[in-house]
Simulated assay, not measured.
Amino acid sequence: MTAAGLVPGRLLIVTAVAAEAEAVQAGVNAGSADPATVHVAPVGVGPAAAAAGTARLLTLAEAAGVPYRAVISAGIAGGFPGRADVGATVLGARTIAADLGAESDDGFLPIEELGFGTSILEADPTLLEFLTAALPHAVIGDILTLATVTGTAATTAALQARHPAAVAEAMEGYGVASAAASVPFAELRTISNPIGPRDRAAWRLREAFSALTEAAAAACG
């Protein structure tokens, strides 16, 4: 069974940018799933654009009478050193809006402590179980969503301390998960760079896109 066949209906895979969508589409095309059952689309960078773009696609499909039955947020990401190496594939057990909250003299306060909701959204267990089986070498853990990605050692250390189960950070997962609402959701990422001080020379975009294509092929094969 493929991810597309996991539930009746169509599967929506959303990415931030076109290059990610192209890498995912190449994997879908290489798999055995009926292409008509899998829709890959870039919806924009950041949680707000991702939420709005995903909600639009879900609404249009519902109105047309061909609703999506599951949503996967896919793309490349930064990996926490020692938790997810460059080139690795990661799956989010939970998607966490890591900068949704407030500063205080005692440190960062997540939105839960402010009484305004939750910053943590869990992956659909059935969809996550399938993806874990299809991608047995994937690293499983929390994936952080941030509007401002990490670029210093101090922020990296603070995030690692606050989120001991986090393996990667990206910018869209929480927005996609919020838009998905009751539609089964999961997040899949491949690691292009270590999280920490920005060093473009250490980024491995080609390897990450290749891993993304392989992961999509396994999920749809």
Rank of each mutant, 00 (worst) to 15 (best):
D124L: 14
V149T: 15
I13W: 10
A180I: 00
G82E: 11
A51L: 05
T213D: 04
G196T: 05
S73D: 12
G101F: 05
A36C: 02
T150A: 00
E20R: 08
V176D: 08
E113S: 09
G92L: 02
R94A: 12
A55E: 07
R162K: 12
A63V: 10
A211E: 06
A55K: 06
L127H: 08
V17W: 10
V149H: 00
L131P: 01
H163N: 07
G87V: 15
V66Y: 04
G196K: 06
G196M: 02
T15F: 12
Q25A: 09
L11S: 01
I191V: 15
A158E: 11
E187K: 03
A97I: 05
F130Q: 06
L114W: 11
L131N: 02
L212A: 08
S182M: 02
T118K: 07
A216Q: 03
G27A: 09
A21Y: 13
A77R: 04
A123Q: 08
A153Y: 12
R189T: 14
G151R: 01
E207Q: 13
E129A: 14
P136A: 08
L212F: 09
A166V: 06
T59R: 09
G175V: 00
E103G: 12
L12E: 04
D124K: 09
I76S: 03
G27V: 03
A217V: 04
P47F: 03
G196Q: 03
V71A: 04
I120N: 08
L127A: 14
A180Q: 09
M1F: 06
G115F: 11
A166T: 00
G78N: 00
A219V: 04
V183G: 12
L91Y: 13
G175E: 01
S73A: 15
V24Q: 11
A63T: 12
L128T: 15
T118F: 06
L159E: 15
H137N: 11
L57C: 00
A63I: 15
I96G: 01
T150N: 06
V149F: 00
A88T: 08
V86A: 05
F209C: 10
P110Q: 13
G44H: 02
A77M: 05
P42L: 14
A23C: 13
F209Q: 09
G78L: 10
L188R: 03
R83G: 10
S119Y: 15
C220A: 13
P42R: 07
A3N: 05
F108T: 01
P110R: 13
A84P: 00
R56G: 07
G44D: 06
D85Q: 13
A41W: 04
G173I: 07
V14K: 02
A19I: 09
G117E: 08
Q25T: 06
T37H: 07
V28E: 14
V40T: 02
A158R: 08
T132N: 11
